[in-house]
Design a protein around this nucleic acid. Structure first.
Length: 520
RNA sequence: GCGCCUCUAGCUCAAUUUGGCAGAGCAACGGACUCUUAAUCCGCAGGUUCUGGGUUCGAGUCCCAGGGGGCGCACCA
């Protein structure tokens, strides 16, 4: 923390006096509060109590006071914690420091202990005997019925959203279960989880503009990774025959309902497998996670039904175009004819595109959004897939397959390119694209080529967009609903970046390539 | 990056087509109340109407610029 930062620069200013004369000042707060029972467990154990019945048993619970109904010598509070809500039933004759408890603010944390009862009006409650303040809320938690709506408040101050808005905590709990489910399913098939570098000297493995950063002690620029692929393949070359990573990747792009500059990818590589084998792996993961998290492979998304149970339908990219648009478009037509087809569909194509890029663009603009799925779209043109192995029987194509669910790609499946000479040629083709103005063309990675020269077995690889999978399972339509802290523009008037004051008459701390943790 | 929309009390929202004293509910604060469920009732307080200019006798309202946010487009998974 920086001591002289004004405390009132946030959008929410204190709505309670921060008076220090009462007994809720921090020194009244204990250093621990052990032995609490999760509310969900209380409900489970005592849910059968009859109206007006007292269990005779005492529990200890802790959480945040969300509502308070005071009636003179009697008060009811709604205590919320991670697993649920329970009513605190407080009587002046029974509850310690009753007058003080009545004055708690909404949002304060407390711990409470007492008998589990069901009130005369039928509400399962803890009849509080003793209690202790655990934290004071100085900013309030929005409208007690409507929560908060302002997107800026919801995402920039997510802690408010998490407490105040129904369903938000549950959604992030679901996300956690999805990620854990993916790990369990992969582990069950003998995959090993690894962690590869985030800082890359050469950004590779995908098409995207990277973020650049600087490594002071090496006097070199580095890039935040845009994909996990190249290092994972090197693990396979090193003998890790089934390997995966779930990690953050970074792409220097705008935001949108489906886009955040950093997002979570799963990539998995399986030696001795081809793209059809890993398509089955993809189905296993997606349907398996749905089963464990939702209890079924069927779900509703945007008001439409979806069944993720395998096997998923498979069709080629060209068949998909014809099925959706009624128009024929194939690589065999050649670039000129494909451009005519694109023009007939009111699509504009960049000058530098080759036939494969035109075909792929036609597919992405006209067909993909209209495939409800789940369906696997297979056999892409070679020129759009520089790390994918040539199709075993269709010249000009590669063995690449994309699972489509609800009109969106949720991942990728490949027969990985294992021939170093072919890989070298593809990198050279990418270099030409770069000369033609494609900023996202993949740079040549000599380290990776040398690794391939040591021999990579036939390998199938998959990528899976974890955020989009969670969106699908949670039936939400904006990626910000599944990212705790989505990318936002820095707040105006915020702190200058570390080191920004350097070289300005000693205003900043003297640094030696190190950024201090705290300003003086 | 471009276009359109938006910003009012801590929160959720009003404010008469077409400029005329800035309001309510909740929260907070004071009080009443022994079975409430968004408790209820009484009282009190709460504002640089995002910021800065402009038009006008008069601007929350109209105009210009800036900032935050939203939605489209572009880029992309």
């Amino acid at each position: 923390m920086i001591p002289d930062t004004p405390s009132d620069t946030t959008a929410v200013t204190p709505s309670h006096p921060t008076g220090d004369s009462d007994t809720l000042e921090p020194r009244g707060v204990p250093y621990d509060y052990r032995g609490t029972v999760p509310v969900a467990e209380v409900v489970e154990r005592y849910g059968r109590l009859e109206t007006g019945e007292e269990s005779g048993e005492t529990v200890r619970v802790a959480g945040r006071v969300m509502l308070m109904r005071v009636q003179g010598k009697l008060a009811f509070a709604t205590l919320r914690e991670w697993t649920g809500e329970i009513q605190l039933f407080c009587l002046s004759a029974v509850t310690d420091r009753f007058e003080e408890l009545k004055r708690l603010n909404l949002g304060d944390w407390i711990g409470a202990e007492g008998e589990v009862v069901r009130t005369k009006r039928g509400e399962l409650s803890v009849k509080v005997r003793s209690w202790t303040p655990l934290a004071r809320a100085q900013h309030g938690f929005g409208d007690k019925w409507r929560g908060v709506n302002d997107p800026d408040l919801r995402f920039r101050q997510r802690e408010v959203d998490l407490w105040a808005n129904e369903g938000v905590r549950e959604r992030f709990l679901l996300r956690s279960r999805v990620v854990r489910g993916l790990r369990e399913l992969l582990d069950a098939r003998g995959f090993v989880e690894v962690e590869t570098p985030v800082l890359h000297a050469i950004p590779g493995g995908g098409f995207a503009k990277p973020f650049v950063t600087h490594y002071n002690s090496m006097h070199a620029d580095f890039y935040l990774r845009i994909a996990l692929e190249l290092f994972l393949k090197r693990c396979v070359i090193g003998g890790m025959e089934r390997v995966y990573e779930i990690g953050r990747v970074f792409r220097n792009e705008g935001t949108g309902p489906k886009y955040n500059p950093e997002f979570t990818m799963l990539e998995a590589y399986q030696a001795y497998a081809d793209y059809l084998d890993v398509a089955e792996l993809q189905e296993y993961l997606v349907s398996g996670v749905a089963s464990t998290v939702l209890g079924a492979t069927t779900l509703s998304f945007e008001g439409r039904e979806l069944d993720l149970a395998p096997p998923w339908r498979r069709l080629t990219l060209e068949e998909a175009i014809t099925e959706v648009t009624g128009v024929e478009a194939t690589l065999g037509m050649g670039e000129a004819e494909l451009r005519r087809v694109a023009a007939g569909l009111d699509l504009e194509m960049e000058e530098r595109f080759d036939a494969g890029q035109v075909l792929t663009e036609i597919y992405e603009k006209t067909t993909e959004p209209n495939l409800w799925g789940p369906v696997h779209v297979m056999d892409y043109p070679e020129s759009v897939s520089p790390l994918t192995r040539k199709h075993r029987s269709k010249p000009g194509y590669v063995e690449r397959l994309t699972p489509i669910v609800a009109g969106r790609e949720i991942g990728e499946c490949y027969s990985e390119l294992i021939d170093p000479e072919d890989q070298r040629a593809r990198f050279e083709a990418q270099a030409l694209d770069r000369l033609k103005g494609d900023e996202e063309a993949m740079p040549t990675d000599a380290d990776f080529l040398r690794a391939l020269e040591r021999g990579m077995p036939p390998t199938g690889g998959i990528g899976l967009g974890v955020d989009r999978l969670v969106m699908l399972l949670a039936d939400v339509h904006h990626i910000r609903e599944v990212l705790l802290f989505p990318a936002l523009r820095p707040e105006a008037g915020g702190q200058p970046p570390p080191g920004a004051a350097q070289g300005q008459g000693g205003a900043g701390p003297a640094t030696d390539g190190e950024v201090p943790d705290e300003a003086p």
